[in-house]
């Protein structure tokens, strides 16, 4: 699974890195950024989904690479 954040939409609510700190991190201004170059660790997929689903701006896209 890969994660990306549309930085033109992110408003810095900070819920992604609160709910999925291994997938997302905060930049110095509080905006979200992806960790590990956007590669979601296998054991963090549920957390990634939760972080994405709680984004009030719907700025996060997850892509499943399992196929």
């Amino acid at each position: 699974m890969r994660a990306s954040i549309d930085s033109s939409v992110c408003a810095g609510h900070g819920l992604c890195y609160t709910y999925a700190p291994e997938v997302f991190a905060d930049d110095p201004n509080g905006y979200g950024e992806v960790r590990h170059g956007g590669q979601v660790p296998d054991d963090q997929q549920d957390a990634a989904r939760r972080g994405a689903a709680n984004c009030p701006e719907r700025a996060i896209t997850l892509t499943d690479q399992s196929r």
Binding site: A11, G12, H13, L15, R50, A53, N54, C55, P56, E57, R58
Partner: peptide, 13 residues
């Protein structure tokens, strides 16, 4: 999943 608008949305969050 509990996205809400209590802190606002968009640039004025």
């Amino acid at each position: 999943e509990n996205p809400h608008a209590s802190f606002g949305l968009g640039p004025h969050r």
